[in-house]
Amino acid sequence: MDKAATDGWSVRQILAQQGILIAFVLAMLVFGLFSDRFLAFDNIMAVLRQTGIVGVMAIGVTIVVIGGNLDLSVGSMLSMATVLVVDLHDRIGPGPAILIMFCAVLAAGAINGVLVGYLRLNSLIVTLGMLSALQGITLIYTDGKNVDIANQSDTWFAIFGRGDIAGIPTPIVMFFGVAVLGHVLLTRMPFGRKVYATGGNPRTAVYSGIRRGRIVFLTYLISAFTVGCSALILGSRVMGSQNNVGQGYELLVLSAVILGGTSLLGGSGNILKTVIGVLILGFIQNGLLLLGFPYYAQWLVTWVVIILTVWLDVASKRHSLWSPIA
């Protein structure tokens, strides 16, 4: 047993480092075997289109998490943004509606940023509080009612959720566009390096002349911006909005980030892996439905997948699947 463990290390190392990719390919194969519709082009495009909403936000949250913090407020921030943009659409037109929606999410993100970045309050508490505060604001704003767009067929607002750009559905374009932007920001620009440093060791960052508060503040603005983008997709696809439409998205988003292997301790992770994490979640959800599982079974399966991923991640750091010392 012990000998096998040492010999098998290199295999395990590969598993641990590329586990997420392997899991992805395996999941695709299994679903593909059992359902002939799963790997059909139409189905894949449908899944990609759906994952856009979670995907765009996951990019923003990945950046927050690399910076060493959490953002749990994205769920109800998405509710607020979608309700706002849909409700204002008919009153003041799509352009101004979008503008006001972005102002609102950026304001919420800025409050998160000031509290966590400058006042250095615990991000879990701050954003959990924001989650509940924004849901409250949204319910007050709508007076508990749902909102919708009256004339759904001829508004250019449809482009975000229903349209396509150069033949590719807009949500997919936005997801990959934001992912590329995020990746460039993190790996090719000084700001990204500072985010990694701040998340990796905040004290060292300060001792290196990095303004930690500002970096954290900006990561929350980025996260809020991505929520705004997701609200465009969601609002435009449904052309209406329940007042709690974003509920539960914070967990989906965080699951995707964790699946991608971004450490919740901060300082490590990357966008590309988050993208794969998002895709895995999306395809699992879709595959289970195609196989005839009840809708809510995906929640259970998602949990199992996350636990397995986290275990592999931890095991690779400890150089062993189970170890008596941390």
């Binding site: 440093a197 990796g200 060791n201 960052a205 001792y207 300082g267 490590s268």
Partner: peptide, 20 residues
């Protein structure tokens, strides 16, 4: 605790203060 980001590579640690 104050000098290094342990999870970063050698190059990135050295260039950190002048990264801008």
């Amino acid at each position: 605790e104050q000098g290094l980001v342990l999870g970063m590579n050698c190059r990135d640690n050295i260039t950190l203060p002048q990264i801008d």
